[in-house]
Write a protein that binds this DNA or RNA. Structure first.
Lengths: 154, 154
DNA sequence: TATAATTCCTATCGATTCAGTAGGAAAAGC
DNA sequence: GCTTTTCCTACTGAATCGATAGGAATTATA
């Protein structure tokens, strides 16, 4: 249960694009140095984001990357999926593809519920929410939940 | 965002113990063959579960493993944490330890909310819930959510 | 007291992923 | 033509994942 550096970098880089005016392009070098992300690594990440059509690219002098659509219409889930694949996978399978028998027959339900809960946060949060700090009521409820900010050792 | 085979195996193995009477011991060999889990691998997993005090062990003939407490008081989150570590980690850091500046300053909130949502499922679900198929209202709501069983391609 | 059953401990393995680097080809603007 | 920039391929070192191997320590039982 791990959010990779790729996903973290991707979101931060796109946040950087989001604060520019729409259609405004920015080069990898600029984004990388500003956000403190290894430039060559970020280059590869942007490749994924282009493939997922979350950003558009333009080569050559004056080129760079820009958001493909308004920041309000790009969810964090979109970005995570673009660089890390599916939100939840169990031993390489999607939750609904898992098959259990006997005592653990109901386990598929747990994975489905887990993915559903994760989606509730990551799909409801847009890039715009992140840059403005203005989160959806659902997310705000999670943030206010009991012990949300506490580490749970046991 | 990956549930490892370790976690999957651990839950299934403990579910196998849960259907036995309390205090009933079971050998790794028996559990492994019954649940179709590589025995030697499962042996290592049980080591983690003992360390986390979720099961007790007894060596020698007639020995084996048993749940350390009633199945209703062992959450899926307990098991996952015992074998896989913290539920959510961002580049090796706990969500509340992440530090962001500039455009992505609010990103910590997203990770906190995500962990909070994951906890809502995995802490509210006990081993007993899994073997009986009787889930908490919260979890049932997630299962009934729109598109919960659908893959989300884009 | 021997023997069989069982956990426990250490070590190893191949494959994959993760994070990151390197070098250069292709395109675009000046 | 020169510079800027994306794009593509390849590589690397470290860690993790899933799994196996061999044997030491412990316990019950015959």
């Amino acid at each position: 249960m791990y959010i990779t550096a790729r996903a973290d970098y991707a979101i931060r880089a796109m946040a950087e694009l989001a604060v520019l005016g729409a259609e405004q392009r920015r080069a990898v070098l600029a984004v990388g140095t500003e956000a403190n992300i290894p430039v060559k690594f970020l280059e590869a990440i942007f490749g994924d984001l282009v493939k997922a059509q979350l950003v558009t690219s333009k080569r050559g002098a004056g080129g760079g990357y820009a958001l493909a659509r308004p920041a309000a219409h790009i969810s964090i889930a979109d970005i995570v999926r673009a660089v890390d694949g599916p939100l939840a996978a169990v031993g390489g399978r999607a939750p609904e593809e898992t098959v259990y028998t006997g005592a653990s027959a109901a386990l598929t339900n747990v994975w489905i519920a887990l993915r559903s809960a994760m989606r509730d946060v990551l799909e409801a949060t847009s890039l715009d929410d992140v840059v403005t700090g203005n989160f959806s009521p659902d997310v705000q409820r999670w943030l206010a939940a009991d012990g949300a900010w506490q580490r749970r050792s046991s």
